[in-house]
Amino acid sequence: MACSIKLAASSKWRLGAYRGGILLTVMALALALGGCGGMSRNESPASVEERGTPRDPVATSPVPAAPVQGAPTPEIAAYRPPAVPEYRRPEPNRAVAALTRRADAQQQAGDLGGAAASLERALRIAPEDAALWSRLAALRLDQREFASVQQLAAKSNALAAARDDELKARNWRLIADARRGLGDETGARSADRRADELDR
């Protein structure tokens, strides 16, 4: 139970956008959550070290787990406790930033197809950038491709995973607009409510 608490907690401190705040919060929580996030009580060596460090991103390469005594083991390696999402939206690299600027200019000039092509180009460079997917969804809204807006915004939400509520709220508003565009007022209101919850 303690660890699901950790997750819930973590999704709150992310709101402090500046680094110092996060760092302080992390330290405070790390102290407070010592029992959960800290050292394992398990006797086994390798796999334990790994699940211990609270700020280990999920993505790090796993150290192959040494067999745990008596357990039917190595499968432990595939299941690790949640990474504590010390999350800041990644700074896009220069290439992605340049392409996004280009897309902005194209969109403003009314060249929506060109803007879409630029954003897709950016997505090939950073395919897991949730903010880019959201940006593309917003463009499709301009193109009045409502079905596509909803899918792209949902994709952005999925990539944002359990972090970046601000982005997810924006996505829900896009979904709401798209639903309105399709004449689905009820659906739009429910999407707006999701956005409100996240914005809170």
Partner: peptide, 14 residues
């Protein structure tokens, strides 16, 4: 390595 992030609504339990 693949980057699998737990989506919202997924919890880990011991």
């Amino acid at each position: 390595s693949i980057q699998l992030l737990p989506p919202s609504g997924v919890e880990y339990h011991w």
